[in-house]
Design a protein around this nucleic acid. Structure first.
Length: 254
DNA sequence: AACGACCACAACCGCCACTAA
DNA sequence: GTTAGTGGCGGTTGTGGTCGT
């Protein structure tokens, strides 16, 4: 599939690349990854672009540790669905399958170690208890067990106050979160959003609200599709937007 | 202060499913 | 019905940060 030649970049994304990707996703929506990869001038595969967006750049993402209620939900859903991470992730607004996968892996490993310890050591309430209470949920010995002890915690995560929800997957209802909360953990992206604001991209603003739902059906998507054929799109993008990406690298970013 | 162990996160790879030609 | 292109998913690995010794 073409793009895997030696010019294809791999490894960590640079700020510049992030910036470009965000811009092009806003332009074309978050579906046509191969197209975006091509026209953006990013030396990345479409897959890579998608992954970067889905797991990191998407403004609807929460960052930071899973809240206790999220942990419980993960356990519950995993017992239901198994390793269907994307399915589980859809039930956890703002969380990605990758994140949940990582979480599960880490905690299951931890649990396996604890199990070993308790199996060889005293069966009494031991170190594992403190671990359990701290996470308030990771207490089953069998990850897939259906009887997951649900420890009710009144504790509410600071995430659980109405962060951006990925309603795309769930209800379809768009929600704009309290921006102060939204800032939490968004240091890097914040800069990008700010810079986007500063750009003349303002003309696009009516179409794009970075804190609204990710736009599988961005208005300009339909606008553009009325006047563009796919071929025309490519041509137009090559001519028009590639220039913009060059401006990014040369003009807006040192 | 140096070192190793552990953890969290980011990213890649390979496979599969879907879709348009 | 077949096939190539593309996106999505799950598994795995690499890396940087933190913590304990």
């Amino acid at each position: 599939m073409g793009q895997d030649d030696e010019t294809t970049r791999k490894g960590p994304w640079t700020e510049n690349e992030d910036f470009q990707l965000v811009f092009y996703v806003h332009m074309f929506g978050d579906r046509r990854w191969d197209f975006i990869a091509k026209v953006s001038g990013l030396k990345r595969t479409g897959k890579s672009c998608r992954l970067r967006w889905v797991n990191y750049l998407n403004p609807g993402l929460k960052r930071g540790k899973l809240a206790p209620h999220e942990e419980r939900l993960v356990l519950e859903l995993h017992s239901k669905y198994g390793n269907r991470w994307s399915k589980i992730a859809r039930k956890l607004p703002g969380r990605t399958d990758n994140e949940i996968k990582n979480y599960w892996r880490t905690h299951m490993r931890k649990k396996a170690q604890e199990k070993k310890k308790t199996a060889s050591g005293s069966p009494a309430l031991s170190p594992s208890l403190s671990q359990c209470s701290s996470s308030s949920s990771i207490c089953t010995s069998n990850p897939t067990a259906t009887s997951i002890p649900m420890i009710e915690t009144k504790e509410r995560s600071f995430y659980d106050t109405g962060g951006v929800e990925r309603s795309f997957y769930d209800s379809g209802a768009t929600r704009v979160s309290d921006s102060s909360e939204e800032q939490e953990g968004y240091c890097g992206m914040d800069e990008i959003w700010k810079e986007l604001d500063l750009l003349e991209v303002d003309s696009m603003k009516p179409f794009f609200d970075p804190y609204s739902e990710i736009a599988p059906s961005l208005p300009w998507d339909s606008c553009l599709s009325t006047s563009w054929t796919m071929d025309g799109q490519e041509e137009f993008a090559e001519n028009t937007f590639h220039l913009t990406s060059k401006q990014f690298s040369s003009g807006f970013i040192d």
